[in-house]
Amino acid sequence: MTQWIEIGALTDIPRLGSRVVRTPGGNIAVFRTESDEVFALDDRCPHKGGPLSQGIVHNKRVTCPLHNFVIELASGQAVAPDEGCTHTHPAKVENGVVWLSVRQAAAVS
């Protein structure tokens, strides 16, 4: 069952930007696109563990600040020809409030 946790207001995250949510299992990066969709991913690039939350967001992708891996926000997949996948977590916006559901498997890993 999905357990939703309120993590803040949408406006707390800059458009085309990201904020970090701390969890015992590691940081989760929550992204906001230009059209106010939100996505949550482990804040670790599959390449060398770079903090994706610090990257430049474009459309529904983020570029890792360390070595320019581009990651799909929706799936966590690296854009070809790069390979790798970052764990995603369900996230949604309701009435300007951002909700996150931490997938334990990911948070532990």
Binding site: I7, D12, R19, V20, V21, T23, P24, L100, V102, Q104
Partner: peptide, 12 residues
């Protein structure tokens, strides 16, 4: 200010 602080801290 937001840039340097986490959005939330969760204790799961």
């Amino acid at each position: 200010r937001n840039e340097f602080a986490p959005l939330a801290e969760l204790e799961l």
